[in-house]
């Protein structure tokens, strides 16, 4: 079989990719304070400890607020840009799209410090909202990538047909475009939510005195005694993101299937 060696390699590679994720629950359920082998036995005490941590609860609340707001704003901005880039030709298109997509490759620390400098310079107090500003910036390129494929799959004559049959631009958007790109929108909301929930650097620079979940996690790494609780928290987060991503993938594919397109790949 000619794919044989490739398959062995691929499975080895997946193991490498999943190594940390496999270890995570092992330590989360391990009945020991020190994160090392050999394992000491099964325990759920880190999970109970996690639930009783007030600082964690505050951080979680902050992160959820940021993630929900970010996902809505980034998706809204993504809809505009994806629609513009798939439907219209206009001057400076490449430049503007390049700028909007730039955070995809720009190191997050650059985004973080540049925003920090400007916000402090303008006398804006750091808060959850300043984190949201940064998160919207880095999530928007991902939403555009997802939404562009949704808009691309949309045959332009569908809009013309609705218009030809007496609908206005607004009602065409409501009756035809929105239902057809809805799966893409849901997928984009979920992805931005996941990115925002997981983002550290920007939150670290811009959150001020209100920690987000990753900032809280990072601070806990300094205390070895707190690490097992973080492992428990990580296990929960990983499960949550897998569920969210699975839903997002489901909607993305359904969207493509519904508008009769062809699946061309993953989230990126």
């Amino acid at each position: 079989m000619k794919g044989g060696w490739f398959k062995v390699y691929a499975i080895g590679y997946l193991l490498f990719l999943y190594a940390p994720i496999i270890l995570l629950p092992m330590f989360a359920f391990n009945d020991a304070t020190i994160i090392a082998f050999p394992l000491q036995g099964f325990s759920t005490r880190w999970f109970s400890a996690m639930l009783e941590e007030p600082a964690l609860r505050i951080a979680l609340k902050n992160s959820l607020f940021i993630a929900v707001t970010t996902s809505v704003l980034a998706t809204a901005l993504g809809v505009f840009a994806a629609r513009a880039s798939t439907r219209y030709r206009f001057p400076m298109k490449a430049g503007l799209m390049g700028l909007i997509m730039l955070p995809l490759v720009l190191p997050e620390i650059i985004v973080a410090v540049s925003l920090l400098v400007v916000l402090l310079g303008l006398g804006v107090n750091l808060s959850l909202w300043t984190v949201i500003l940064g998160h919207v910036l880095i999530c928007t390129p991902f939403t555009i990538a997802i939404l562009s494929s949704a808009f691309q799959a949309l045959d332009q004559s569908l809009e013309e047909a609705a218009y030809d049959l007496g609908e206005t631009a607004a009602s065409t958007f409501r009756l035809i475009i929105l239902p057809l790109v809805m799966p893409g929108i849901i997928s984009s909301l979920l992805i931005s939510f996941t990115i925002s929930l997981d983002e550290f650097i920007i939150a670290f620079f811009l959150a001020g005195t209100e920690p987000t979940l990753p900032v809280y996690i990072f601070s806990q790494f300094r205390f070895p005694l707190a690490v097992p609780v973080i492992m428990a928290l990580g296990t929960v987060l990983v499960c949550l993101s897998i569920v969210l991503l699975a839903i997002a993938e489901y909607f993305r594919r359904r969207g493509i299937a519904k508008s009769g397109g062809k699946d061309t790949g993953g989230f990126l």
């Binding site: 990719l17 190594a19 940390p20 995570l24 990753p214 690490v227 973080i230 987060l237 993953g266």
Partner: peptide, 22 residues
């Protein structure tokens, strides 16, 4: 593709920390 992308989206900080453990 889904299997390959999953680890990318999950808790970056904790993944890095676990490399320390590994």
């Amino acid at each position: 593709l889904f299997l390959i992308t999953i680890p990318f989206w999950t808790s970056y900080l904790i993944r890095v920390f676990l490399w320390k453990v590994i």
